[in-house]
């Protein structure tokens, strides 16, 4: 087992079952996002939680701007975690952008995966003349500005200095607790990679059965996007949830668990 990969991605394994279910968080948070949902699977499954590099308690030093300038870099990490844990027949649950990271991973090594579950997925956020993603380029640019304004206290120069100041551990602790402990520089890059990526070709090549969990009134992944995915992803099923917003696993955990379990029992 490659311990460096498990610490790099802060991998947590729990559960009494043998069938692996892997939960991947989306942009803006870390594995804590799954705290209301993951325990419901511990009895029957081997539950794998992790943080993407740059999020949560991952190893920030492992961040490589080149590698993570594409979702491919994140997918490679998913595959490395599977390999390090020797996982087979993985059920991959991805929230938001992680759905597409799951698609890329499954296209690279389909033999590792059994099912994919997408929570609030979108293959492309920005509108095209013949595609509705829900956003214009200008919206994404304003989002990046909004992120800058929210991380204004985190000077790019200051943060690493504080983080590496062993005499004042409380500073690091305080910073780590804010914003699901996401590094602002990396978070900004993650936002760019997420919202500027285009995975419409990738979904067409998917060979693993998948479930699209579509929320009602999700402005980030609207119904029209879910329908596009359903139409263009071979072997996909779609379930529209009563839950509103973009984070049903946080706002409506019971419904989320029920839908997932119903799909997996088929």
């Amino acid at each position: 087992m490659d311990a460096s990969i498990l610490s790099r991605n802060n991998v947590k394994v729990s559960g009494e079952g043998t069938r692996p279910i892997m939960f991947a968080h989306g942009f803006g948070c870390d594995q804590n996002m799954w705290r209301f949902v993951a325990p419901a699977f511990e009895k029957d499954y081997q539950v794998i939680l992790f943080d993407f590099v740059g999020s949560g308690k991952s190893d920030l030093a492992a961040y490589d701007a080149g590698k993570y300038s594409s979702l491919r870099g994140y997918a490679d990490d998913v595959l490395e975690i599977c390999e390090a844990l020797k996982l087979k027949n993985v059920i991959f649950v991805g929230h938001s952008v992680s759905s597409m990271i799951g698609v890329i991973s499954a296209n690279l090594q389909p033999q590792l995966f059994d099912r994919l579950i997408f929570v609030g997925p979108s293959p492309r956020y920005i509108n095209d003349p013949d595609y509705t993603g829900g956003f214009e380029q200008a919206d994404i640019e304003e989002l990046l500005e909004t992120m800058d304004r929210n991380y204004i206290g985190w000077s790019n120069f200051l943060a690493p200095a504080i983080m590496s100041n062993p005499d004042r551990p409380e500073l690091a602790a305080e910073l780590v607790e804010s914003f699901c402990s996401t590094d602002p520089v990396i978070a900004r890059k993650f936002a760019e990679v997420t919202f500027l990526s285009d995975n419409r070709q990738d979904i067409k090549k998917l060979k693993i059965p998948s479930l699209i969990m579509q929320c009602s009134e999700d402005m980030i992944a609207p119904l029209v996007v879910g329908e596009y995915l359903y139409k263009n992803t071979p072997g996909s099923a779609m379930k529209v949830l009563k839950a509103t917003g973009h984070c049903p696993h946080v706002s409506h955990p019971e419904e989320t668990i029920d839908v997932m379990k119903a799909y997996l029992s088929k």
Binding site: D139, L143, C180, I220, G245
Partner: peptide, 27 residues
């Protein structure tokens, strides 16, 4: 604005739900 909606959904909402509070969020 649309950008602030994304930030609300991806950052603010999970933060308040998971931590119980949020401070100095720019919108």
């Amino acid at each position: 604005t649309i950008a602030s909606r994304i930030f609300y959904q991806t950052h603010f909402f999970p933060l308040v739900q998971l931590h119980g509070n949020a401070q100095e969020i720019f919108f």
